[in-house]
Design a protein around this nucleic acid. Sequence first.
DNA 1: ATGAAAGCGCTAACAG
DNA 2: CTGTTAGCGCTTTCAT
Lengths: 360, 360
Amino acid sequence: MDRRPTLADVAVRAGVSTALVSIVMREAPGASAATRERVRAVADELGYRPDLRARLLRRSRSRLLGVVFGVQHPFHGDLVDGLYTAADRIGYELALSAVTPGRDEQRAISSLLQDRCEALVLLGPQAPTAYLAGLAARLPVVVVARAVRHRTVDVVRTDDAAGLEQAVDHLVELGHRRIAHIDGGRAPGAAERRRGYTGALHRHGLGRNALIVPGGLTEDDGADAARALLELTDPREPTALTVFNDRCATGVLDVLRGAGVAVPGAMSERSERINQHSASSRSADRAQRGSAMSVVGFDDSRLARLSHVDLTTIAQDAATMTELAVARAVARLDGAPTGEREQVVPPRLVVRGTTAPPAG
Amino acid sequence: MDRRPTLADVAVRAGVSTALVSIVMREAPGASAATRERVRAVADELGYRPDLRARLLRRSRSRLLGVVFGVQHPFHGDLVDGLYTAADRIGYELALSAVTPGRDEQRAISSLLQDRCEALVLLGPQAPTAYLAGLAARLPVVVVARAVRHRTVDVVRTDDAAGLEQAVDHLVELGHRRIAHIDGGRAPGAAERRRGYTGALHRHGLGRNALIVPGGLTEDDGADAARALLELTDPREPTALTVFNDRCATGVLDVLRGAGVAVPGAMSERSERINQHSASSRSADRAQRGSAMSVVGFDDSRLARLSHVDLTTIAQDAATMTELAVARAVARLDGAPTGEREQVVPPRLVVRGTTAPPAG
DNA sequence: ATGAAAGCGCTAACAG
DNA sequence: CTGTTAGCGCTTTCAT
């Protein structure tokens, strides 16, 4: 396997200068149609591919956006997809750097810095604000899906509070009065969602019924929270749940259904059967009374859309968010005047199978 | 925000030549301790970071490995993690390129080619063998988790057939006689796993009971397959299932449990309750008879390890596979003598909650 | 141990 | 329209 062909190789073979080849390859103006034709033919024949690194090295502007994402998070997958699309549209490349169990955020960012990215897009970063601020002093930093209050850091996030208000409104409209929230702890967005939940409950005069159960952002966190909920012996025992995110909601659903608590939706066949037949356990009591538990998630990740999950959820508008994030990063690079540091995208309620009026 | 510091900036500030700074930054021999100290101090002070692109451009060898992965696949996340570790250990960098709903494999590979990666590591690629072969003519290509029979393509994969044999052995040992397989269609590894399943059944003299249900690699595929299975009125009605992968198994589990079919494991509390109370539907009949369905997945992705899933599964040894993949890529680059094109890693049965002896 | 100089593959002025 | 030239930031001889 010999050396890859270079611009010079193509130039020699085509009998022109390297500059001309460069022009043709970049589809820049300044070459005759005939030359273009010939150069392209030779390039194809040689299997020539421009060396991006050399190109970027030479260019003052690298047109490279660094992206840090969590390899575990389904929603990050959706965001990465959107980022590719958005970057592509305006001729930017993406450099991906993953946060994995064995590779922390710090390293992910650090490697991107070496790649000469012009700006950084961080998906739900864990790093403290101070660190992000330090980073932003070196190059434009756009944080997605997390609130960061600092004047040098751009933020694109969903209106988490509004999302939870929509969720609560939906449930109240269905007739629910006792609605609990399984929260995300210190996860990005969790505080805002808690706030939205509490606010909405008060607005509906249900402040007394507020109940926040510690959760988290993984399925296991949801499972734990659901188990805790099942232990609850309390007049405020809820008929509906708003859950921090879809992953967590999945865990909740599994445990609830596993414990015989009816959850509306695709599985209702089973639920009905359970409702017909009494049993001795607490959760069966619940079933016996004909009660059911409605569940609302957050994100509208692919997870929620699965037919067997069919989760009512608050959709984050990944397409818009990624579009804004890329646009903002580029605006900073161009020194264009920009508006607010923080861009808040409205969420959207997606009603699926897991919500229904309370039984009884 | 002014220009990032370069080698030259550091050199001037430290009062030495750029060559010396280069030596210090690379920790190469040829500089006094005092100089090292001073240069490093200045570099830190300036926040200097070597430009990877320029470095790679100059170096003949880029020490860059391109990785194509599917942003949707949890198991690819595990592999990426392992690849980072393996590459890191031998001083290679990784360039990640994602396959997303809006970005196909072709583009993912193409962008890596421009990045001057020295070799490509493809995780479960969909591309036809011919295309991969063409690629391998240009640079070393290591395919992970898919069988490709071509003399120029390196392959690191799990012994899929052996994995399914282990799964079947485990179930037979528990006493199951009617074991069905939900397969992965044309997904990487699916054919081998089917073969392993069929072979193992024959070995146990259960060939007559073989039943292969069309599935796929997503949760939805599993859900569909499970529904099809529930419709089954057949003497061969199984008491246990081997499923193409963990994702698919998750869908299967949800539908089975939703239909009231007892599956062993964390959820058994509910299952027992159901078993006590008869109902009219087919699946309830199944429950009434005290039957249960054991389920075995494949991959041992994080999904299987979730407490509420607790899936018995065939573990792919991601750490070993990634280690081998990187080692092989580098061996090709070094022109080192290598062994077989195909390296097959043994899988390992991980018994968790979803398998138990057949009821009755 | 240190420095000068060449050049990796490409683009951007400028000259013709 | 085409060619020449000068670097981008770094590594690597080869001198000193």
